[in-house]
């Protein structure tokens, strides 16, 4: 067996054993512009998968579909075996009701490129808002957990600050803590360091490395930080034109890719 086949086999095994995320025939169109056409892929439970590919290849769209921020044009997405927005019923494609969607969505958290903290709330309030009003935690419980998370991201003493008083890197770490406060099984990270000054990138990546090392949370990552991707990923998917053109372990993908387009892309970004 070639390295490539081994990788594919292990990935398939992993996702069949415990499918964290399944994309099945996913189609996404904006108007008449087809971004994803019949896309299929699995991410195993606890797996860390990085999506790479040229601008406009649909990486963000994939994460936004999972977070239900975009409407799924065709196909199905499953999270832990549950249909996310559409299900098959008697061979028909049926859209789920908002309540059901919300139920599955709770398992997923997302960190955005632009942080998107709520500027009218303190750091602490940002983090405890959803645990209190979505998970139904008591204020004390939520605060305790939030403090723990703030310590974890190195901002234990900034709970009373407002987002505008923090640097970009600090805001992004708060956003990570806010997502983690919901105890998601899956976390989506879309270029979370792209909006940061270079000297602030390291702290954020260290927080994520730490997260990868100490939890079994499933991570779906879009990043231009190739060293980081190589360090934390179990698998890297190379996208082009809305298709996966290469699926490999990071050491293979970054040192010895088989696809010409991948080679070309990596030469340009590395």
């Amino acid at each position: 067996m070639s390295t490539d086949e081994t990788t594919q086999a292990s990935a398939a095994q992993q996702s069949e054993a415990s499918p964290g995320i399944i994309f099945e025939g996913v189609v996404k169109r904006f108007g008449d512009h087809t971004v994803l056409n019949e896309l299929n892929f699995h991410v195993g439970k606890g797996e860390r998968v990085t999506l790479i590919g040229p601008s406009g290849s649909g990486k963000t769209t994939i994460l936004r579909l999972l977070m239900t921020l975009e409407h799924l044009t065709g196909g199905y997405i499953y999270v832990d075996g549950e249909p996310l927005t559409h299900k098959k019923e008697n061979g028909k494609r049926v859209e789920l009701r908002a309540k059901q969607v919300a139920q599955t969505r709770k398992r997923i958290g997302m960190v955005f490129q632009q942080f998107n903290l709520f500027p009218n709330m303190s750091v602490m309030e940002n983090i405890i808002e959803a645990p209190i009003h979505v998970l139904g935690k008591s204020k004390e419980e939520a605060r305790g957990r939030a403090q723990q998370l703030l310590d974890q991201v190195g901002l234990g003493d900034r709970g009373d600050a407002h987002p505008t008083q923090l640097s970009g890197g600090q805001q992004q770490r708060v956003a990570i803590a806010r997502a983690l406060a919901m105890d998601p099984e899956i976390i989506l990270l879309d270029e979370v360091t792209s909006a940061l000054d270079p000297e602030l990138v390291g702290d954020v990546l260290n927080v994520l490395r730490d997260l990868a090392a100490t939890t079994d949370i499933t991570m779906l990552i879009v990043t231009h930080e190739m060293q980081f991707a190589q360090d934390v990923s179990d698998r890297v998917l190379m996208f082009d034109g809305g298709k996966i053109i290469e699926d490999a372990k990071p050491d293979v993908m970054f040192s010895n890719p088989s696809n010409e387009r991948t080679k070309e892309f990596l030469r340009a970004v590395l």
């Binding site: 955005f112 998107n116 009003h133």
Partner: peptide, 27 residues
């Protein structure tokens, strides 16, 4: 209000009433 605020609220699964009351309207 930037669309990112709505999206963050969705990503946290905040119900619509809470999104309006706690996030959108104060701003």
């Amino acid at each position: 209000i930037r669309s990112g605020q709505w999206e963050a609220a969705t990503a946290l699964s905040l119900p619509a009433t809470r999104t309006w009351r706690a996030v959108i309207l104060p701003q």
